[in-house]
């Protein structure tokens, strides 16, 4: 009796580990290994090629004295606030409107959700054409006779980051809408009815009763949007290429041009570490609170 049981226990114990081992190993090397390597490089004077001589914090010092880095950080601030706030506001509004039992809801939902199916590169390119003063919106308006119309944000270094915001909103708002629509559908209809009898107006019902009940959806959406914002790279590359000049740089594009086109590997590594720290600052407290909730039941 004891022997077969022990055999069974052996397979039971080792089979899952065996199956998981390759992906565990790959993750370990290619994710955490490279993070560690990158972390080390950020403390060296690496330029075009890696150099493993310890140099302390010089790269970080250089980074913090670099004007272009601060432009990128400021842009990320503008982009993140407007992109996350805007996508949430537009998405929630669309979801609430769609939840009012409108006709043709399926079709409308698909239309709004469709941009999500495109890659940021396609979105960026399409919006580059549309916002290009010589090709897109401005030209159209001029052709229609509104010759005083100007919309040159794409080539205006004060405004170029806002074109990134516009394209990002266009791409992601529908996705936020879909998340919230699913959440709204899960809310018991009679709760809304009860609130109507209690005399609450529709905005008050949503603001005081429904949205608080959707807190988990709000949090997951915030998490998804903030990490899209921080790692935003392809959208900027396709839309503005970081320009004019470096006026629409984000930390990700900054890192890319330092590390891969300007031979400043150490500086690029340092900026990558800063981005990692930002993501960690958002994700770790979230994970912590979620895990703690699990433990407490």
């Amino acid at each position: 009796m004891a022997t077969p049981n022990a055999h069974y226990g052996f397979a039971e114990r080792w089979l899952p580990r065996l199956v998981l081992a390759p992906s565990f190993f790959l993750t370990l090397v290619f994710l955490y290994g490279f993070i560690a390597w990158n972390g080390y490089l950020s403390f060296t004077e690496s330029r075009l090629l890696p150099n493993y001589e310890w140099a302390g914090l010089v790269q970080y010092q250089a980074l913090f004295e670099n004007e272009r880095w601060w432009v990128a950080v400021r842009n990320l601030g503008i982009f993140a606030v407007l992109f996350i706030g805007g996508a949430m506001a537009i998405g929630i509004t669309l979801a609430i409107l769609l939840d009012q039992k409108v006709r043709g809801e399926g079709a409308i939902r698909t239309i709004y959700l469709y941009p999500m199916a495109l890659s940021f590169v396609v979105t960026g390119t399409a919006w580059k054409w549309m916002l290009n003063p010589g090709l897109g919106l401005e030209k159209l308006m001029h052709d229609w006779g509104f010759t005083s119309f100007t919309f040159d944000w794409l080539v205006n270094s004060d405004m170029s980051i806002y074109t990134v915001v516009i394209a990002g909103l266009w791409q992601s708002s529908g996705f936020v809408m879909a998340l919230f629509l699913a959440g709204l559908r899960g809310v018991d209809d009679s709760i809304i009815k009860a609130a109507q009898i209690d005399g609450a107006s529709l905005p008050r019902i949503y603001w005081k009763i429904i949205l608080p009940a959707l807190r988990p959806v709000v949090f997951s959406t915030l998490m998804i949007l903030s990490h899209i914002a921080i790692k935003s790279f392809d959208l900027v590359m396709a839309l503005t290429g970081g320009g004019p000049g470096f006026s629409s740089d984000l930390p990700a594009t900054f890192m890319y041009s330092m590390a891969f086109t300007r031979g400043q590997t150490g500086l690029g590594a340092a900026s990558a570490m800063m981005m990692l720290a930002t993501v960690a600052a958002i994700v770790v407290p979230y994970l912590y609170s979620e895990l703690r909730k699990d433990q407490h039941g």
């Binding site: 709760i191 009860a194 109507q196 009898i197 209690d198 005081k208 009763i209």
Partner: peptide, 30 residues
């Protein structure tokens, strides 16, 4: 006439309590 202007109170079969409010707030909401 809108439900709130009909001067009625209703108890729903599925209770329809406001999930994020405590009992006191549920009763006080109206």
């Amino acid at each position: 006439v809108a439900p709130k202007d009909r001067d009625i109170a209703m108890v729903f079969q599925s209770y329809a309590l406001y999930p994020t409010m405590n009992v006191r707030q549920n009763i006080a909401f109206g």
